[in-house]
């Protein structure tokens, strides 16, 4: 628990240097972006072999760009910056802003980064769920390898980075006729999610033509894609609230099995996830329609 005792801080001036430091030290090196996850990780004993902290503040990885039909977010962009950016008020991107708003302490959002939220890869975080539902793509340096954010996160505190690699940026493709929404259920404003759910829908002639749905909170090692529910919602008119409710209530539990812990039982988590899913679908839909 107290074994987080690194001895060196490296402060690369360029991405080449960053890659070199990470290659040289392998799993003994760890990038510090915002740093707000250190406590949560170290108390679980996950940082005990870290000897080199890598300060990436000189690399200018904090940016939000709109380019080639994509929104591109630098890995070191703070959650507060994302929350403040008007780009994320667009219907298809709103889930990301919802997720930022649902994380409460400003003291965290002012420094915590989008890249950090992904790389920390703890299953109860909010940002990954939103990114997954927006089908975000991550770009991994130095070779600019690209993959789905959902696949990048492999499991508990486990991401697809090889020695020498680092998360550089996250991109989301612009979408027509699409709206998204993220919802979270927690006990207090500063609590981790008992359950969270992010939904992105594409609407065609008033009906849902496709949906991307993820649930998180405590649903295993990482947030879960609700594939069957996505299928089930195709062609549904969300303003038919009974139909929407039936669709989700009869399906979501087939997609995901939540865990029981101090905060909630598995059954309750699922019940709440269904409510969140329904409300998020409805809100995402409303965002396209207005």
């Amino acid at each position: 628990m107290y074994s987080f005792r690194p001895s060196v801080v490296a402060k690369p001036e360029s991405e080449e240097e960053l890659a070199e430091v990470l290659r040289k030290h392998g799993r003994n090196a760890r990038i510090v972006a915002g740093g707000t996850g250190i406590y949560e990780l170290s108390r679980r004993g996950l940082l005990s072999d870290v000897d080199v902290l890598v300060d990436i503040s000189k690399l200018q990885l904090s940016y939000i760009k709109e380019e080639g039909g994509k929104i591109i977010i630098g890995a070191a962009t703070s959650l507060e910056t994302i929350q403040r950016s008007s780009i994320f008020s667009r219907p298809y991107l709103s889930a990301l802003r919802d997720a930022c708003l649902s994380i409460q302490p400003l003291q965290v959002k002012n420094v915590a980064t989008l890249g950090g939220a992904l790389c920390t890869a703890l299953p109860f975080l909010d940002m990954p769920v939103a990114l997954f539902s927006l089908e975000a793509i991550v770009t991994i340096g130095p070779d600019m390898r690209e993959m789905k954010a959902y696949e990048f996160v492999k499991g508990f505190f486990d991401v697809d980075l090889k020695d020498g690699e680092y998360l550089r940026e996250v991109s989301i493709s612009m979408k027509e006729k699409s709206g998204s929404s993220f919802m979270k259920f927690s006990l207090t404003s500063d609590d981790w999610a008992i359950a969270n759910c992010s939904v992105s829908v594409v609407v065609d002639e008033g009906l849902i033509s496709s949906a991307s749905i993820f649930v998180g909170g405590a649903f295993g090692e990482k947030p879960v894609r609700a594939v069957r529910t996505e299928e089930r919602l195709r062609g549904i008119l969300p303003s038919d609230t009974d139909a929407l409710k039936n669709a989700i209530d009869s399906t979501l539990h087939l997609d995901a099995k939540p865990e029981t812990d101090v905060k909630a039982s598995s059954e309750y988590r699922m019940d709440v996830a269904k409510v969140l899913c329904r409300r998020a679908v409805f809100q995402a839909y409303r965002r396209v329609m207005t």
Binding site: L187, T188, S189, D190, W192, V262, K263
Partner: peptide, 11 residues
């Protein structure tokens, strides 16, 4: 304070 939930301003 992550598991033992004391109320914050908006709670």
């Amino acid at each position: 304070f992550v598991d033992y939930l004391s109320p914050h301003s908006v709670d």
